[in-house]
Simulated assay, not measured.
Amino acid sequence: MAFADRDQYIADSDFVDVPTLAMLDKQYLTKRSALINEKRDMGKATAGIIGRKEYAANVSIAQPNTSHLSIVDKEGNAISMTTSIEMGFGSTVMVGGFLLNNQLTDFSLAPKVNGKLVANRVEANKRPRSSMTPVIVMKDDELFAVLGSPGGSRIINYVGYALLGLLEFEMDLDDVVNGPRFSNRNGYTTLEKDSILAQYKTQLEQMGHTIRLSELTSGIHAIIKTKDGWKGAADPRREGTAKGL
């Protein structure tokens, strides 16, 4: 349902009246969550009605060429940076030794759907919508965690699960970063191939899920503050590593 609302309403706020507060309103979220059936997959969710001009849903593709890094220096300064060239070789244009990205593909592939405008359509001087989710977490007014991930629109899932694991379930950082992944972007449910989750394929299909077993491009890079100092971890699915000086 969150992905349904995202596809319907999220775009450059300089061009579109994005109903951020309305989407986070507790009454709205309670109403939406009441639609969840724990025993049966709902199939494709529709966006909620948020008292504004209705747009058509975004039409998009996901490209695999994104990176993330998390850094904390000895002075306690921190950066969480996700960077994307979007396609291999980006826009294929090089300037000053750097390839320019092709974030144009983060716009909707169609400006209209069934006669309705798409909020995230291409327009001059408009910023494309992005799923990049670099996060810095403060705890008791002090730096607690720095994290993020590459992974296209599944970045939202990966970072969301990491935050839930660290903040709600107080899991060990290595378990959060190394753990099996699953994803549903308002369509089929993907279970990470060759992980412990694959054994739930039949059970979930019986609940109505359309299941795909696939490798997932999670790349969580995270640093958290522990009682013994800083601890870092890098997702083994990618080429990253964690180092401290």
Rank of each mutant, 00 (worst) to 15 (best):
P236T: 05
V122C: 04
I155K: 01
I50D: 00
I156Q: 02
T20F: 15
T20W: 15
L69A: 07
P111F: 12
V118K: 02
I61D: 10
I36L: 09
R154I: 11
Q63W: 14
P236A: 03
V146E: 04
K227G: 06
I155A: 04
V135K: 00
A242K: 02
M81L: 15
R52L: 13
P150G: 01
G160V: 09
L143C: 03
T30D: 12
E192F: 10
L99F: 13
L21R: 07
Y28H: 13
L24T: 15
N178C: 07
F98M: 11
K243N: 11
E75H: 14
D174K: 14
N65L: 15
A242F: 08
L99W: 11
G187V: 12
S67M: 05
T217E: 13
S60C: 10
N157V: 14
L21F: 13
L245T: 14
G165K: 02
L109I: 11
G97H: 06
H221A: 10
G88T: 15
M42T: 14
D106S: 02
I36V: 13
K225R: 10
A242Q: 02
L117T: 08
D5P: 12
R181N: 06
T82K: 03
K225H: 10
H68G: 01
V118L: 00
D12S: 02
D172I: 09
S91N: 04
S91G: 01
G240I: 05
W230G: 01
M87W: 15
G232D: 07
L147G: 02
T190P: 09
P64G: 03
L104R: 07
L109V: 09
H68Y: 04
V95C: 05
Q203L: 14
H209Q: 01
M207H: 11
E215P: 06
G208R: 06
R40P: 08
V113H: 07
L213D: 02
S84T: 15
N157K: 08
I196S: 14
S91Q: 01
A198F: 08
